[in-house]
Design a protein around this nucleic acid. Structure first.
Lengths: 153, 153
DNA sequence: TATTGTTATACTCTATAACTATA
DNA sequence: TATAGTTATAGAGTATAACAATA
């Protein structure tokens, strides 16, 4: 990741302390870091997450994943098709309209790599934000998210 | 904003505690709330922010705004053109290649509304996250952002 | 009737490359 | 040579509408 210092413009920035923008930029930084890590195994963050979720919930269906991730049914289709096309997971019909998802052996190996990369990524923040701060941060984020959570579909 | 409870799927979610995803979802919630507030005056969050920044820095140029907001030069063009087209700001040449930005009277009125909406939005989080938590949250977000900040162009 | 998967489509955000004019 | 603004374009991400098959 680029470690260059932030550009200094010398202007007054009245929105720098706004929570919305602080969250948006921190989120972008963290997701960029995770994306850089996962790019090493040819996956995007959302794809790595799907592998992790299918690994933890073998036989789950597309719509359930979409609901968990806040991704709409229509947008799950190319994501799942892409992972299936790479041979990382398989779809097998369960009741005629739902498709159960399972990791292939290749997919399981990829999932293990994803977990290692994500764990290493989390460890960076364990070092950056000592104990109490990290707990307060997680609790605050949880409260914010729950305050406005919306059904994805 | 939709206040419906999060959908309950009953699956195991091993990424729910990952900082990256917590940040991404909290950010989406907050920005959606701000977007809903600003939609009442026909502006998106980024447009409201630009009005606020130009109001605080009369005569600033497009590139400076882009650097402050992490938006590339090329993507600033339609943003500024849109605000100018609405009669909210004007561009006036300063040295032949740079354009100084100023709010019009209409733009100043819009900026005042934006500030009120943003302040009300911030106040929601002051209530949700009492004193110490909010300070710790801001400091944590600042450290995360600074750790990975990148030049936008 | 509601749900699942799907297709098509569109809009926003972001990114790069290339060009002109200027400092 | 570096910077400011611009154009064109491409890739993500996300949104809705509509459809067929199934529960």
């Amino acid at each position: 990741m680029d470690q260059s210092p932030p550009p200094e413009v010398g202007l007054h920035d009245p929105v720098a302390s706004h929570l919305g923008y602080m969250l948006r930029r921190a989120s972008a930084v963290v997701m960029a870091g995770l994306g850089a890590g996962l790019a090493g195994i040819g996956l995007r963050p959302v794809e790595g997450t799907i592998l992790t979720l299918v690994g933890a919930n073998p036989g789950c269906i597309q719509s359930d994943l979409g609901r968990m991730l806040g991704i709409k049914r229509a947008n799950m289709v190319p994501l799942i098709a892409g992972l299936a096309g790479k041979g990382l997971l398989t779809k097998s019909p369960v009741d005629g309209r739902s498709l159960a998802l399972f990791l292939t052996a290749t997919g399981e190996a990829a999932r293990a790599q994803v977990d290692a990369i994500m764990a290493a990524h989390e460890a960076r923040f364990d070092r950056l934000l000592v104990g109490q701060d990290l707990t307060v941060l997680r609790n605050a984020l949880r409260r914010i998210t729950q305050e406005g959570e919306t059904a994805p579909d």
